[in-house]
Amino acid sequence: MSQRNRLIVLTGPTAVGKGTVEAALRGEHPGVWVSVSATTRAPRPGEVDGVTYWFMDEEEFLAKERAGEFLETAVVHGMAHYGTPLRPVEEHLAMGVPTLLEIDLQGARRVKERAAELGLEVVYVFLAPPSFDELVARLKGRGTETPEQQAKRLETARVELAAEDEFDVTIVNNTVEQAAHDLWQVIAQEYGIR
């Protein structure tokens, strides 16, 4: 695969704003294709099947996993399965469409394990919070998890933050607009876009 068809993997700790930055990026650059992950977790208010995630039960998910239909899979926060459908990623890369995966640390590590066997070239981007205190404030401000779920996510976040040096590029999410701009710069460079 040529350098101009590299998969961009965006990860970072829980509640760092990966989805928000990705949405801002797509608002400015709608030609970027973002993979829609599959999950066994229940939809949150406003989430749409096939747009936000492919929602499925555990039996369906595990059958697809056994069939090799995912680029990566992970169990996140010990609660739900997540996975990246492989075929759409390969199709968009083959067409030269800037292709982005927004996934958690486990998923990024799994992509690293499988990329070579699948012939994928990947650029790994770590989205970091300005500080751990800011990450805590963002997580609590979302209001989508119970205090117990928040505690589990923050425990996970500490581990995820320690993995920053495993990535090719770090972008600090001080503001969504700047982080989206910085992410676009990485994509534009990899795809030869001016």
Rank of each mutant, 00 (worst) to 15 (best):
G141V: 04
L101R: 01
L71H: 11
L62D: 00
L101Q: 06
D57F: 06
P98C: 04
L127P: 08
V32P: 12
A63L: 08
Q106P: 05
V75K: 14
G143W: 07
R158Y: 03
G78F: 04
V176E: 13
L118K: 15
Q149Y: 00
I171W: 12
N174Q: 14
R153V: 05
R41I: 09
V136C: 06
E160P: 02
R142M: 04
V125D: 04
E117G: 10
F70M: 12
P129M: 11
L62H: 00
E47Y: 03
V34I: 09
N173C: 13
V76W: 08
D49G: 09
I103Q: 12
R109S: 03
P88A: 06
V136H: 06
H92G: 00
E148F: 09
S35W: 10
V125Q: 06
E121Q: 15
L62E: 06
I171A: 09
R109N: 09
D104S: 15
L86Q: 04
I103N: 14
L118N: 10
S131M: 08
K140Q: 11
S35G: 15
P85M: 11
E117Y: 01
T84Q: 14
L100E: 11
V169M: 07
A42I: 05
L127D: 05
P43T: 07
M56S: 12
V36G: 05
P129T: 10
T73W: 02
K64H: 14
M79I: 11
A151N: 01
A163S: 11
P147I: 04
G78N: 04
G50D: 10
E160N: 05
I171R: 10
